[in-house]
Amino acid sequence: MHNSITLGQYYPVKSPLHSLDGRMRIFVTLIYMIMAFVCNSAASFLMLALFSLVLIFISRVPFGVIMKSIRAILIILLITFIMNVFFYTSDAEPLFEWWIFRLYTEGIVKAFMMAVRITALVAVSCLMMSYTATPIDITHSIEAIFEPIKFLREPIHSFSMMMFIALRFIPTLTDDTDRILTAQKSRGADLSEGSLFARIRNLTAIMIPLFVSSFRRADELAIAMECRCYHGGEGRTRMRTLHYRASDFVILALFVVYAAAVVWLNSIKIFGY
């Protein structure tokens, strides 16, 4: 049995980052990301790392939980680090030379900076978009952000409704899969044994009922929505409307200060980096 509520990795505690307005959340995350790419001096990278730690501290999400999302990209991190170290070329005197490999001090520093950048980006985007916000909040916010371009006749509402329904039905379909799997298992279906062909054949015993039940659910949902007079986004109100609050602007100010600090620190070099 699985826990059907934990979709995404929402970490349920109270913090200023959890209560952040969805539109503001996307906006400040964008600032953060752009600034992570603007960083080019050691001092600004230090700022980036420090600010990321501050965010994690504010969010009250335990550090160990964040580390889990970093562990997932450890291999990518390692590969980029190695690539950056070995493929860096410069006219300066190499630090170390062997066969076709030439290592430069600057290359190692650059690779290290890149690693810090990727780690910070992954940690903070997970923090902002997943640990402190539910997928449904994000969907609503995206709709709200694109609201202004509705006059271009873009079906913003339909897209966000589709996204919302898809998210909503993931746990339901997981339950269905579980149920069908159990039923077929007790009729002797075995998905872990036999030749490849036999396994594919056995998989149809799961896939067909699953498709049938998704179509049935889609059909029922469509009828239920029509019964409630759903006719697209026009004139539709929300139960939970988005409001900016004072704390949202405090967070925004924090990000603006961070952005300014990065720009300023870029001009300060420590040991020439």
Partner: peptide
């Protein structure tokens, strides 16, 4: 599982 037959809730959903 062959000796103890199980009819799940809404067994019609297992037809394929």
């Amino acid at each position: 599982r062959f000796r103890v037959g199980l009819v799940m809730q809404y067994p019609e959903y297992q037809l394929f």
